[in-house]
Computed example of a mutant assay.
Amino acid sequence: MKLINTINRAVALVMLSGMIWDATPAMAQIPIRDPHTPGYVTATELPDGTIPSADAYGNFIIGPTHTPAPESVVHDNVPQGMVYRFTIDSKDSKIYPGIAKDRNTFGTPDPANPASLIVTTSHPAPYTRQVAVYVPKQYVAGTAAPFIVGADGPDNLLFTVLDNLIAEGKVPPMIAISLGNGSGDAQGSERGLEYDTMNGTYAEFVETEILPIVEKQYNVKLTRDPNGRAAMGGSSGGSCALIMAWYHPEWYHRVLTYSGTYINQQWPYNPKIPGGAWEFHKSIIPNSKAKPLRIWMEVGDQDLYNPNVMRDDMHDWVVANENMAKALADKKYKYQFVFARNAKHVDGATKRQTLPEALEWLWKDYKPVKY
């Protein structure tokens, strides 16, 4: 592990984390979707420029205008937390020693199973992971703080929004741990292995290899209460956030996703979960007892549609997120689903408009546990 200079929030740039597209060479032209398409969830269309209340549940349509929320920019009169940055090398991880696939390669569909992709160009490879830790000005040393873990970091927009929301009393003072991925994308890559695999390994990696470093290095105490822990991300980072909470609900109860990759992108192929994250809305959530999760989701009308060479009908991000909303509603989950007009995959303008409200909604019912 290599430490990097600590930076003050006052001089940090307001930047949107660059989420990686889950793309392949066969990417089709992306159609603009109508949120009122038959088969989609019934949703309330809000006046342009407005967003749903932090008290609202269910399905909403916003846009086409996406004006940044006031909380998405730095305000000099608001207490600003500290952001600490460090890097982790793959050699330091017992769980993820590192893989990569050759550039400009995708894979070949299994002739006997179009849902399975054969990737022969993936091999062991080292990586370096960036990590940023946000500690709010209001944190009281020695107290157990709620926290949020974010994928595809560092995400400076998240830190700025938290500064403002905490100062406004809209969310509790919380620590944010924004993790970079292990590089690459989709099947055969380190990022794909971490984010798209349908098991608890990534949450276990965070729990055993990241959180202890954060507590020791920056003299903070992280709550063990799952109601005080959230996971967030966009694209595969979004599906990763739900995977963390689904497989380890004893650790995480809150999930926030932009353009969640609830599609068939798991690799290696697992016959017990043949559709990867597509199985969340196809079989896993419908056939499982509801878990104590609170979930905020977004998808854009120009989000990804990528049939690719697999031709398995499980690579449509809009349909996947619409199906997720249906599955969550059927099981009576506490959720809010936003369909954004004039929005692309992990759309930056939409995130700057909605992230403050999304975070406020996510933490609305939080009550700290004293121990």
Rank of each mutant, 00 (worst) to 15 (best):
I7T: 13
N8G: 06
V11K: 13
G18A: 15
I20H: 08
I30M: 10
R33M: 13
G39N: 07
P47W: 08
D48M: 11
A56T: 06
G58S: 04
G58R: 01
P68C: 07
P68E: 13
V78C: 00
M82A: 09
M82L: 11
K91E: 14
D92M: 11
S93W: 09
K94M: 13
Y96D: 06
D102L: 12
T105C: 06
T108L: 11
A112E: 14
A115R: 14
S116M: 01
S122P: 05
T128H: 01
V131E: 04
V133W: 02
P136D: 03
Y139S: 13
T143P: 01
T143E: 15
A144N: 14
P146S: 10
I148K: 05
V149W: 03
G150K: 11
G150D: 15
D152Y: 13
N156W: 10
F159G: 05
L162N: 03
L165A: 04
G169K: 00
S178K: 09
N181R: 00
S183M: 11
D185N: 13
S189E: 03
R191Y: 04
T197V: 10
G200C: 01
L211A: 03
I213Q: 08
I213M: 08
Y218W: 09
N219V: 02
V220K: 02
P226W: 05
M232T: 14
G233C: 12
G233W: 12
G234N: 13
S236L: 10
S239H: 09
I243N: 14
W246F: 03
E250L: 01
R254F: 11
Y258R: 08
P268Y: 01
Y269T: 14
Y269N: 07
K272E: 15
I273R: 12
E279C: 14
H281L: 04
I284F: 03
I285T: 06
W296D: 02
G300C: 08
L304S: 06
Y305I: 01
H315I: 12
H315K: 12
D316K: 01
D316M: 03
A325C: 11
A327I: 04
A329N: 08
D330V: 07
K334C: 11
Q336R: 12
Q336M: 13
F337R: 06
H345R: 00
V346Y: 02
D347A: 09
G348S: 15
T350R: 10
L355P: 00
A358V: 14
A358N: 00
K364F: 07
P368H: 05
V369A: 13
